[in-house]
Structures are given as C-alpha cells and as structure tokens.
Design a protein around this nucleic acid. Structure first.
Lengths: 333, 333
DNA sequence: ATAATGCACGTTAGCGCTAACGTAGCCAGG
DNA sequence: CCTGGCTACGTTAGCGCTAACGTGCATTAT
C-alpha cells in the first residue's frame, strides 16, 4: 500500500489539471467548470486525498482551528460548556483545542501562548483566573475573543455573561424569607470575576434585606468539592451558629454540605445550602441541592455562535446576560 | 503598535544572523554558540516572537498537536480522563484537539477525518463506537494510536484497558453473596467493547454462581442518565421481581436508580444497584452508589504516556489491564 | 607544517497550499 | 472586423519554517 499520503499535486496530476483547479474544485470555489469539478472531486476521493489544513492555513493566513480555555474540565459546568461549544464549532467544520488551566494563572498564560503558536485566531475563555490587565494583554494575540463571565473589554472582545448578581440576590432573598439571618458565602477564588459579581449580589441583597454585611462571613476557597468542605469548616469555626451558606458553585456547595455533615449539622434544619449552575448532579446528591439554574449548553452554544459571528465579521448586538433561575430543593427547603 | 506578528526572519534581521541560527537557538538545538543563543533568544523575546507551529510542522513533517476522541464530554468519566490526558500532553508542550462524538459512529468518523486534515499523528480513542473493521481502517491515517477500552489491534496501535470482565465478576459475586438471584444488566451501547466485556463477565459470574444466564435480563441502553432510567423501566416490565441491576456505568446507574424510585422500588431493600467507574458523584447521590472503582486520572495519564512513548519510538511492554475495585455503598449495602 | 577534524554558522530547496495575477478562448455589440 | 468582457483555467510567488548540505575557521593529530 502507498504509505505517502496524496497531496494536491497528486490529484492534479491524476486529473490532468493544475493544482489551482484542484484547490478550487475541492474547496467549492468558483472558477471551475461543473464537469471538471466533479471529475476532480471523484479523483480526489479515489486517491484518499484530504487537504492539509495547516498548509492551507499558512498559505491563506487564516486558520480553521479555534481554542477554548477554562479552569477545570472535571467541573461538569465547564465540561458541559465545552461540549456545547465544541459541538457548535464542529458543525461548521472547525476543530477546537481545549485547554484546561487547573485554576492556575500561569497555566492560563501558557495556554494562550500555545494557542498563539498554533496561530489560532479565535478563542473562548471561560472563567479566566487572570487579572484584567494581564488578560487584556494576553488576548491581544487573538483576532476574535469571547469571554464568558468576565468583564474585560477590548476591540476584539465579546462578552457572554450570566447575571451572577441577580442570581445571588434571588438566593439571598429566598434565604431571608426562610428566616435565615446568619448567611455565609463560600466565595470561590478571589480572582474570578463571577466570584466578585456573586459577592456584590450577596452584599446588596443582605443590606437590602436589612442585615449587616460582614466580611468575615465571606470565605474564599478553591472551586471544588474539597474547597467547599474546607470553607464550611472555616465558616463553622468563625460562627458556629451560621444558618445558611451560599456557595460559589455547585461542586463547592456539595463540598460545603459534606463539611457541614462532618460537623454534625443537619441540612437544611441547621444550615441551608445553595449552589450555583445546576449541574446535573445537583438534583441527585443528598440532600438535593438548591441552586441557581443556568442553561449551560445554551451558554456554551451562545459563546461559540458569537465567536463564529466575530470570525465572519457579522455585526452583532451586545448580548443580554443570561438570567439564572432559583431552583429550590431540599438543601434550602 | 506593530500589527504584524514577527517571524523568524524579523528576529534574524534584528540579531544579524541567519534564520537557521534563530531556528536552532529558539528550539534549543546544537550548532549555535552560547553567546549567540542567548542574544538571539533575548531579541526574540523582545520582539514577542513565537514560532509558528503549523509552519514548523509543515517543514519538519512532524506535528506537535495530538487528538483525543471520546463519546461524551458531559460524562465525568470521559471529562476526567480527557483532563488527565491533556494535562499530561501539555506538560510536554503538546496541544490536543478534543473531539466529542456524541455517541455517534458517523461523528466519530468525521472526527478522525478532521484530525487527519490537521495532520495529527497521534491520537487517543476512548470508548469507540465503531466496529473493529471500520475503526481499524480509520486509524490507518494516524502514526500512533492508543485505544482505551477497545480490543482493535494494529501495528501502530497500543491498548490501555480496564479489566471490565474481572470488575463485573466482583460485582455479580457480591450480589450473589447478598442473596440476589434476579440480577439484570443495563448494558449500555451494544457497539461498546467495554459493554461487551462487562456482559461477558456478567454471564461468566452468573453461571459460575449457579444461576442461569437469561438474555432477557440484559437490556441495552444509551450510556447516560436518561438511558438508565428507561432501562430500569424496561427491566421492571420484564421482571417485576428483579432484585438487582448492574449498570454499564455510573451515570447509567444513577438513571437506573431514578427509574426504580419512579416505580416505587426501594434501594437496596427491593433492588440493589451497582455502577462502574466511581465518578466523584457516585459517592454523593442518594442512595450512595456501589460501583467498580477505576483510577480515572491514572487511566488518562497512562493513555497519554503510552501515546507519547509511541511517538518517541520508545519500546514499551504491553500494559496489564487496570483492575477495578468494588466499592460497596448504600445502593447494594 | 599539513591534513584532518569539529564547530559555528549560512544557503538552498522545499513542506502543501493559496492569492494574485496571467492567458486563451468564447460571445455580444458596434 | 475589432474591442471589450466574461469564463475557465494555468503560472508565479510566496506563507514561516526546517532538513540537508554547504563554508570558513580554529583546533588537533601527524
């Protein structure tokens, strides 16, 4: 069997035409007669010819690969987001490099560098852990950028957001109505913009409800199960009579519930818990988790659609933030 | 600001050397003096030069990008596997295209085609949904292949496996010891090799335990929560007195538990349930799920390490299959 | 002293493809 | 009849990089 893969030149030779004609025929571009196009295509098929996207990108100065960067693929929120985004891209024939940064700013920068070395032009960044200025600088390497849940702006940057503030207000209001007065916040990573927005909503709603905002009730933590567990322990130490904990996201909330259980607290009788995102497991854990529901596949699909529109140069209206919806389950029932 | 990104030629000009010297210096290859190397590197840095990997791949006929293909990124098993695999690759400076096939053989083939167009040389395929012959043909396009949980072999193919058969025997034996006699299997997709292996183990253990193997107790299903729910309903219809259900994987098992709950069955009093994989949520759902524990990050890391070894031409001993470990929790306690 | 070696670099020829600009043949209009 | 315009191609010159093979010079062996 012929080991060497066939190139455009092989097809041209076999078809008795020039390589430009093959290029035009294979890419469906005008300037080829119908008969010639069909003939070239069937010969290409017979030879197993597949265009080399790298060479094509190099020559045409435009890539068919995209990138997506986020902190943690083991978090179902990002996994589902990335799934929706990559599926949307693939429906258009575009491949995507998926970069997991493990919550590390350094690794996030190195992901951007790698993507730039691949001469990727369009990327989605979800849940950046970089400061706005560092992020802004890093993003200059890309022609089109979609930021999910981040406020950094720029000429080449579009933003797709969840209305974290509003969601948080819903959560706090619900807890206040339940009679909770000692509401703590397992706040996630300080560098996360959504963490900051959730904190702002938390504070606004507390004050609006006539309660004092107490910075000591805000405990930052890593956004995973273990971080939630540690946050719960820290909160209990500061205020053993805490009666509600809102968590940065659902996996943190799950950790918080474990931490509370370890300390012998009943949920929700002693302490109510609310998460954010409504990952599929939120409804399944014990007790089932109240949370701020976000349509994650829609978010991912939207982010990619916006990126594709930027790429096409299609003008697009600024997006309204997605409104989360409070889902009350056992953990705050 | 200079919009055009700098190329190797810009660096060469600025440093007063040839582009080959820049190439050698930047890539840390021999044939450059220490002083020259440092000087070139600092000038490259100052100009913001980043090598173009596509051009480099084209010229050197070797790519620094890899691929990973699997059915469902929303399944934590694959998300965690992919995370471990991509992290291992990135530690070596390699980027990876992540392809989600949505359980569709057609999309799996199209993923391979896209990867081939990117002239990817090494890929990991986990949980292929293709027949051995179609898979074998599709994989000829790649120089190095690692198959996770698939028996297809070939000159360029390495296999990394979980010992599904053994795991299944542990599960059935445990249920037999509990006194279960009507043990059904929510079997997952028929095309999945691990489903076939789990079925074989199920059958062997049943017969070994003195029970008859009844094909009607094997109900295939999509490997997700909804599939598990439907499988449970189908199993209850065929045998209302079923006393145990083993599921293809943990998310299927979670669906099975929901289906049983919908039908008013108590778990484990009426029906015991056992899953496979031990995804992080298995321990957290209600009731907590007995499962066959697999070290998923290790599996992903191993798969990528094997791929990198193949790429390097490092000879490697054939791998022993990873042994799953039965974790008994409430669902079968 | 002289040839043989090794090292630090430079030059050349592509990798597979496409943008941009040919060119030849055809048809319409004056 | 010629001009102009169109279509269907072909030719040329790269994209940014590296493999392979120079070249010149200092060092060493003989």
């Amino acid at each position: 069997m012929g080991k060497r893969r066939s190139t455009i030149a092989d097809v041209a030779r076999a078809a008795g035409v020039s390589i430009m004609t093959v290029s035009r025929a294979v890419n469906g571009r005008p300037g080829v007669g119908d008969g010639t196009r069909d003939k070239v295509r069937s010969i290409a098929e017979a030879l197993g010819y597949r265009p080399d996207r790298r060479a094509s990108a190099l020559a045409s100065r435009s890539s068919t690969a995209l990138g997506i960067v986020f902190p943690d693929m083991a978090n179902p929120f990002f996994a589902i987001l990335a799934k929706a985004a990559t599926d949307t891209a693939r429906a258009r024939g575009l491949n995507v490099f998926v970069m997991n940064t493990d919550e590390s700013p350094t690794r996030e920068l190195s992901a951007f560098a790698s993507l730039h070395e691949e001469r990727i032009e369009g990327i989605i960044v979800a849940g950046s852990r970089l400061s706005p200025s560092k992020l802004g600088t890093a993003l200059e390497a890309f022609a089109d950028v979609v930021l999910v849940n981040n406020s950094t702006t720029g000429p080449n940057i579009a933003n797709v957001d969840v209305d974290d503030r509003s969601g948080m207000i819903q959560a706090v209001t619900h807890l206040l109505a339940k009679g909770c007065t000692r509401i703590a916040f397992a706040a996630g990573p300080r560098v996360s913009v959504s963490a900051q927005r959730r904190l702002a909503g938390y504070r606004t709603a507390l004050v609006g409800g006539g309660l004092a905002f107490d910075r000591r009730r805000v405990v930052k933590c890593t956004p995973d199960i273990e971080g939630g567990r540690r946050a719960a322990a820290a909160i209990l130490e500061l205020d053993p009579d805490v009666d509600a904990i809102i968590a940065y996201n659902d996996i943190t909330a799950i950790g918080v519930m474990r931490g509370l259980a370890d300390a012998g607290r009943r949920i929700p009788e002693d302490v109510a818990v609310i998460g954010t995102d409504d990952i599929p497991y939120a409804a399944l854990v014990r007790p089932s988790l109240s949370t701020l529901r976000v349509d994650i596949p829609l978010l991912g699909h939207t982010a990619m659609s916006v990126l594709l529109a930027l790429r096409d140069g299609t003008p697009l209206a600024p997006m309204a933030a997605l409104e989360p919806e409070l889902v009350v389950r056992e953990s705050s029932g």
